[in-house]
């Protein structure tokens, strides 16, 4: 992990309140797995913002981030222009452990702004010849992004809260008809969604990626902990995660 002033190569709105940011810098070389994150410092704001890595290319030294405007800090981030610098700490955390994952048929389940790290994962798995089925959930059609990209990897099921795109409902709705079509699942989204998915698929190996308000982002401050069922009793999302095996953490 390092701290670097990265250059903004590209910055555009891709859906409602959702932006794509492409940065160039040396720390891209340190990315080990999809699912890791970078910690962005935004001028005038005290705490860094953790943003998951949606894609990266070591040959060009670029990293792609997708973020959603959720408050004043991310709103201020939208005003950063191409050519400007951004103070980045990263890459942080443990991603999806590509070397140890054993899957032939992967089910990807993403909710809203939890979808970006799954894109990088799906891309890697697809390149390894894994069959990919994706279930992507959004609030509405205006919020949807990366749908065409996921369709390149395989079958995609879309759910929206209002039914304006795909079927109306939750990402857990299509799971019953997908039973038996996958051997491992990978999910990222709001914690209630992760809990619903992991309870529904409790007999299948799974990896979940979590988010939480962070302090340091490097494991020192204990702001972003989640309960674990072992003797240790906790995991730090920023450095032990954000990706965990489903049985490694207790979701509430």
């Amino acid at each position: 992990m390092n701290r670097e002033s990265m250059t903004i190569l590209h910055h555009e709105r891709i859906a409602k309140d959702t932006y794509q940011l492409v940065l160039k810098g040396k720390l891209v070389d340190q990315i080990e797995d999809p699912g890791q994150f970078v910690h962005l410092l935004i001028d005038g704001f005290y705490l860094r913002r953790p943003v998951s890595i949606a894609d990266y290319d070591k040959s060009s030294g670029t990293v792609t981030l997708l973020y959603k405007v959720l408050g004043e800090g991310t709103k201020a981030l939208t005003r950063k222009s191409v050519g400007e610098q951004l103070d980045v700490l990263g890459p942080g955390g443990q991603g999806f452990p590509l070397k140890s994952i054993q899957t032939q048929r992967a089910l990807i389940i993403g909710g809203g702004i939890g979808i970006p790290p799954l894109y990088s994962l799906a891309k890697h798995l697809h390149n390894q010849g894994v069959t990919i089925i994706s279930v992507l959930g959004f609030q509405s059609m205006d919020d949807a992004f990366l749908v065409d990209e996921f369709e390149k990897f395989g079958e995609v099921y879309i759910t929206t809260d209002d039914g304006s795109l795909g079927r109306k409902g939750l990402v857990t709705d299509p799971l019953s008809e997908l039973e038996g079509t996958f051997d491992t699942y990978f999910t990222c989204g709001p914690t209630p969604m992760l809990k619903a998915v992991s309870e529904r698929l409790s007999d299948i190996p799974g990896y979940i990626s979590m988010e939480e308000r962070m302090g340091c982002g490097i494991g020192a401050c204990f702001a972003c902990v989640v309960e674990s069922p072992d003797k240790k009793g906790y995991r730090r999302i920023c450095c032990d995660g954000p990706v965990f095996r489903s049985e490694e953490v207790v979701l509430s």
């Binding site: 704001f45 005290y46 705490l47 308000r213 962070m214 302090g215 401050c221 204990f222 902990v225 309960e227």
Partner: peptide, 16 residues
Amino acid sequence: RFGNATPRVAETASGM
């Protein structure tokens, strides 16, 4: 000690 429930941090003007 396992500490408090999350969220455990919040940003403020010039601090946290």
